[in-house]
Simulated assay, not measured.
Amino acid sequence: MTHPEHTPASLPATASKRTFPPAGRSGRARRARVEPMVVRPLRDGRYAVETDGEDGGYVVDLDGVSCTCPDHRRRGARCKHLRRVALEVTERLVPPPEERTAVCAVCGGRTFVPLAFRGPALCAHHDHDLGALVADRETGDRLVVVGAAGDRADRAETDDGRLVADYPSNAAYGAHEPVFRVVYLDSLRRDAPVRQYAFPASRLRPLRSGEGGGDADPSPAADGTAPPTTA
């Protein structure tokens, strides 16, 4: 019986071998790019590498800079398998040793998270760092993220007992999305209590460097509804 630590953690058994352009390389560096290989992350942070014409493939330890192939074991060379794993990690095709593959809770796309991570996984398009400036896609108002992704929009309640997903202004966003807590940027400049709000992850758009926007006002919207507040 195969130990789970030595089994692939992400790629299906039918994954096809890929190649990369030679990019002017020679020797092992070239072979690492042009030879068809499959790199499979293992549950112990190592990688199984399969290539054409090699029986059973080899196991690469990227942190330990080792490979079970004869080229590395006998010659101590930085073999083509080590180089290929490093290349695929750099290209974000496989997770680095301290991370694992996960599915974005918003779009279902592939992302990488720390091995011990247990919260909702989000891809780079839908994750927001604490303190990040973002914009409300509905109004263009500028906001500051003050709380990490939490409950789903159809489970997170606001101060008035309503679910975030039940607000009409959130109808275009998935009820399954985790919510972020934010404050209006303009409210931080006022001598008044700062109120927090909760938005589905994809309703928040990261602000580009130097991007402007209208002054935000944490007052109810024109239709008489206010953005949902956190519990």
Rank of each mutant, 00 (worst) to 15 (best):
T19K: 12
G109E: 11
S187T: 13
G161Q: 08
T7W: 00
K80A: 15
A23S: 06
L133A: 15
P22Y: 00
R208C: 11
A221I: 00
L163N: 03
C104I: 00
V39H: 06
R78A: 14
T19D: 10
P178Q: 15
E138R: 02
Y173L: 01
R190F: 07
S219T: 08
H125F: 13
D223L: 01
T101P: 01
R137S: 06
A153N: 06
R208N: 12
V39K: 08
A48C: 12
Y47F: 13
D217E: 11
P70N: 06
G108T: 03
L130P: 04
D71A: 13
A15N: 07
R162D: 10
G212F: 05
G140P: 03
G45S: 06
V49W: 05
V164A: 08
F117L: 06
G147T: 15
D129K: 09
L11A: 14
L62A: 15
L42E: 03
H128I: 04
Y47P: 04
S16L: 14
S209I: 05
T2L: 05
P218G: 11
R110F: 03
G64L: 05
R31W: 14
A149S: 12
T158W: 01
D63G: 07
G27F: 09
G108D: 04
V144I: 08
G214K: 14
G108M: 04
T90S: 13
A149M: 11
V39M: 08
R110N: 00
D191H: 11
D52H: 11
R43N: 00
C107L: 10
D129Q: 12
V103E: 07
